[in-house]
Amino acid sequence: MFIARVTGSVVSTQKVATMTGHKLLVVEPYRLDDKKRQSLVTTGRTFIAVDTLGAGENDFVLITQGSSARLTPETKVLPIDAVIIGIVDQVHIDKFSVYSRNESNDR
């Protein structure tokens, strides 16, 4: 499981029947800044994840990948390898708040 930021969406009108009605989002994984350890920084990668929670652009989300992505009731029959399983409210490392959803409206 890891943290990613929603950076966009994908629209696909032609797809396998089991994927009809599922929102696809472009997500960018983030990691803890290894030098300062007081902020999250991008890993520079992007991929597509199925959204089962209603996440929006710029939200930080929890992602699970691989076969674990098909272990939720909503995704058990889907041909996917990445799913959003949570919307992040806050991230604390040591004594620092490195992310707060309430304070990130300027993103």
Score class of each variant (00 low, 15 high):
Gln38His: 10
Val88Trp: 00
Ala4Lys: 06
Asp106Cys: 10
Val61Asn: 03
Gly44Glu: 04
Leu25Met: 05
Gly86Leu: 01
Val16Gln: 10
Ala4Leu: 09
Ile80Tyr: 02
Leu25Glu: 03
Ser97Trp: 13
Thr75Asp: 01
Thr18Ser: 13
Val41Phe: 04
Asn58Pro: 07
Asp59Leu: 13
Leu78Glu: 03
Val83Glu: 06
Gly54Lys: 00
Val6Gly: 06
Phe96Leu: 08
Asn102Cys: 14
Leu32Ile: 11
Asp51Tyr: 06
Ile84Ser: 05
His92Thr: 12
Ala82Lys: 04
Val88Tyr: 01
Thr7Pro: 11
Arg45Glu: 11
Gly44Arg: 03
Val16Arg: 11
Lys95Ser: 13
Asp33Lys: 05
Arg101Glu: 07
Asp33Thr: 07
Gln65Ile: 07
Leu25Val: 04
Pro79Met: 14
Asp106Ala: 07
Thr7Glu: 15
Ile85Thr: 02
Thr52Tyr: 09
Arg45Lys: 15
Gln14Tyr: 13
Lys76Ser: 10
Met1Gln: 02
Ala17Tyr: 04
Arg31Thr: 09
Gly44Ser: 07
Leu62Trp: 12
Asn105Ile: 12
Arg107His: 15
Lys35Cys: 12
Asn102His: 14
Lys36Trp: 10
Gly66Ala: 04
Lys23Arg: 08
Asn58Gly: 08
Ser39Ile: 13
Ala69Thr: 00
Met1Pro: 05
Ser97Arg: 13
Thr42Ala: 12
Val11Ile: 14
Val6Ala: 05
Leu78Ala: 04
Gly21Phe: 07
Arg45Gly: 10
Val50Trp: 02
Ser104Thr: 05
Gln14His: 11
Lys15Gln: 13
Ile48Leu: 00
Lys23His: 02
His92Val: 14
Gln65Ala: 05
Ala4Tyr: 09
Pro73Glu: 09
Asp51Ala: 06
Ile85Leu: 01
Arg5Met: 03
Leu40Asp: 01
Asp34Trp: 12
Leu71Arg: 15
Val26Tyr: 14
Phe2Arg: 08
Val77Asn: 08
Phe2Ala: 11
Gln14Trp: 10
Asp106Gly: 07
Ala69Gln: 00
Phe60Ile: 02
Val50Gln: 00
Ser68Asn: 12
Leu40Phe: 06
Val41Gln: 02
Val50Leu: 03
Leu71Phe: 15
Phe96Val: 11
Leu62Phe: 12
Leu53Ala: 08
Val27Trp: 01
Asn102Tyr: 15
Tyr99Leu: 00
Asp89Glu: 07
Ile85Tyr: 01
Glu28Leu: 05
Arg45Ile: 11
Ile93Glu: 10
Gln38Val: 14
Lys15Phe: 13
Ala17Asp: 04
Glu57Val: 10
Arg37Glu: 14
Gly66Pro: 03
Val83Ser: 08
Arg31Cys: 06
Gln14Leu: 13
Gln38Cys: 12
Ala49Val: 04
Asp106Glu: 07
Ile48Gly: 01
Glu28His: 07
Val10Met: 02
Ile3Ser: 03
